[in-house]
Design a protein around this nucleic acid. Structure first.
Lengths: 218, 218
DNA sequence: TCTTAAATTTAGACAAGGCTAAAAATAAAA
DNA sequence: TTTTATTTTTAGCCTTGTCTAAATTTAAGA
């Protein structure tokens, strides 16, 4: 069993590894954890003792298989709770992070299994990020930006890239939410604008909007 | 904002106050918290500094209005989460305590307000205990044991007294759950057994069972 | 009332996590 | 290849919450 602090470190290192490949530096961890490098060194040494990461002085750290699995499980919980908050409690996509940050540390396998079922075994969280399975595996995702689609292609909205209140309200107005099917009817190459179909409605969207919506093509 | 440990102490003292009236002793707190009296002394002094309880050396402690409100709020969260776990995730009544014990410490007013609404503003948790409102007020409860009812009386099942697996399975078989209406058709005084009506079914129950079911009469 | 027992508090210590300041190692620049 | 700058680690200290052992207060019994 890992403490709240340990879980947060593992999660942070997991995310850093997926961005810049290679060993993760102490300073990088300190930055995302909003803490001091000296504190990171202490914790990283402790986690190395626990075999969830390998650590070479002055060289950085990388997760072991067990560490990666543990981290993925915390992320799984975080994202499932986010789905709950948005789908069931009707929070907006951009309001749920801090609450999920707390909920992700509740320990109960059974709870997460039942929550997963209750939510209909979702594959993506409200930001379009994939939800790892119980073993920590992440389905290779087909997620792309709407702006990457071409005429006649279609997919399902799985999230937003950067969410702000105005944008979310726009989506509400247009009846676009997680799971909404979107088809590209036309695309202008000189400005990247599109005409799309959502439900029975067809309308124009700017490149800026198309670049902010994640679509799963399948 | 109170720490996890502080919230647990407040909750424990709240429960102790409601049982034995008068100041709560250090040893009593240590017992229910499964900790040492010396640790209790430390914490109680800290909480007194924070004005959530009044403390007189060697004499015991009692919650201030603010402390009582804070405690009631933690209990409110605990019980709402229990309703969620049973009603939505289909846990059994006796499996939810430990999980709710963790969930109750998630900090977000908005979360609890929405959860409350999602659950349909329940008045009782799955054990039949009343759920305090946002201000910490507990409706004077009409809860009694089924065994206290007499012929021709009726009420709604709001919980169980002592739950064990066998008993919960029995209730399942008889289709008795939270919210089930139960009417007393007959009662034998020499052994306390009853004939009751549940839905369209009428059947016999022993005194032992009647003494283990909480009923809200109204 | 005097003495013993029980309850409570104080003193000192420890583990988890974090911080600051100083030392050491690595990387970059001249 | 030195010198300088950056990164990382070490050492020592702090807070929270807990514990043990010893001291103190209150309660109970003779």
């Amino acid at each position: 069993m890992f403490s709240l602090a340990e879980e947060n470190y593992l999660k942070a290192i997991y995310h850093l590894e997926s961005k810049h490949k290679g060993a993760v530096s102490t300073n990088a961890i300190a930055e995302v954890m909003d803490t001091k490098p000296s504190s990171v060194t202490d914790m990283v040494q402790k986690l190395a003792d626990k075999k969830v990461l390998s650590y070479v002085k002055y060289k950085g750290t990388s997760l072991t298989d067990e560490g990666r699995k543990t981290a993925a499980n915390v992320i799984r919980k975080h994202r499932l709770w986010e789905v709950f908050l948005v789908d069931k409690l009707k929070f907006h996509w951009d309001e749920v992070h801090d609450i999920a940050e707390q909920l992700e540390h509740v320990h109960s396998e059974e709870l997460i299994a039942r929550l997963d079922k209750f939510l209909g075994f979702p594959d993506f969280d409200p930001h379009g990020d994939p939800i790892p399975d119980k073993n920590g595996n992440v389905k290779p995702t087909e997620k792309k930006l709407l702006s990457e689609l071409n005429k006649k292609q279609h997919g399902v909205c799985v999230g937003v890239k950067e969410s702000n209140s105005d944008f979310l309200q726009y989506l509400d107005k247009k009846n676009i939410t997680i799971g909404t099917k979107i088809s590209v009817l036309g695309k202008e190459f000189f400005d990247g604008s599109m005409v799309i179909q959502v439900g029975r409605d067809q309308f124009f969207i700017s490149k800026k909007i198309a670049e902010n919506l994640y679509i799963q093509t399948n």
